[in-house]
Simulated scan of single mutants.
Amino acid sequence: MILVTSATGNIGRRLVRELHGAGFAVRATTRNPGGADLPAGVEVVHGDLADPSSLRDAFAGVDGVFLLGSPGDVPGMLHLAAEEGVRRVVLVSSLLAETHPDSFIGSGALAGEKAVRDSGLAWTVLRPWEFTSNALWWAPSIREHGSVYSHEVPEGSQVVDPADIAAVAARALTEPGHERRIHPLTGPERLTVARRVAVLSEELARPVEFVELSTEQARQRMLRYMPAGIVEDMLSTEGGDPGLPDTVRRITGRPARTFRQWAREHVEAFR
Rank of each mutant, 00 (worst) to 15 (best):
H178S: 14
T8F: 04
H20E: 13
E43G: 07
G240L: 13
L78F: 08
L95C: 10
R264S: 14
S147T: 14
A60D: 12
L95S: 13
A7G: 11
E175Q: 15
D102C: 10
V159R: 15
R271Y: 06
I165G: 01
V42D: 00
D73R: 14
V197Q: 10
A81V: 03
D164V: 02
E189H: 12
G61S: 04
D48S: 06
T5F: 10
A256K: 09
I11N: 03
D161E: 04
P101L: 09
T30R: 13
A25H: 11
L96F: 11
R249G: 12
G120Y: 09
D241C: 00
Q220Y: 08
Q261H: 07
A166N: 03
E84K: 12
G187S: 06
R190D: 00
V74M: 05
R271H: 12
V231D: 01
A228S: 14
L110D: 01
A22V: 02
R257K: 02
A218S: 14
P188W: 07
D164L: 04
S103H: 01
R254W: 05
H266A: 11
P39T: 05
V193H: 09
A115L: 08
R260N: 11
V16P: 11
L235W: 01
V153A: 01
G61T: 09
L91G: 03
V42L: 04
E144Y: 05
L80E: 08
V45L: 08
V148G: 13
P162Y: 02
R180I: 00
F270E: 01
E98D: 14
R17C: 12
P154C: 07
A50Q: 13
E113Y: 05
V168D: 13
E268L: 04
D48M: 06
P154T: 02
V197M: 07
V208Q: 11
H79D: 11
I142K: 06
N134R: 11
T5L: 05
R221C: 00
H178Y: 15
I182C: 13
I105K: 04
V44C: 05
V267F: 08
R14I: 00
E202S: 11
Y225C: 05
V208P: 08
D233T: 15
R206M: 00
G76Y: 02
T29L: 05
S157T: 01
F270G: 10
D161W: 12
T30H: 09
L110R: 15
A22L: 13
A115W: 08
D57M: 04
A111R: 09
V208M: 09
K114T: 12
P176G: 11
V248Y: 06
F104C: 07
E179Y: 04
R195F: 01
A22C: 08
T5W: 11
A82N: 07
G240T: 12
L121T: 01
G253K: 00
R224F: 02
I182E: 15
S214N: 08
P128Q: 06
R196C: 14
L235Q: 02
A50M: 13
V4Y: 06
P154R: 09
W138V: 01
V267Q: 02
L15C: 09
D102I: 09
R171M: 11
A167R: 03
S119G: 05
R171Y: 02
L204T: 09
V92G: 06
R250I: 01
L185F: 07
P184N: 09
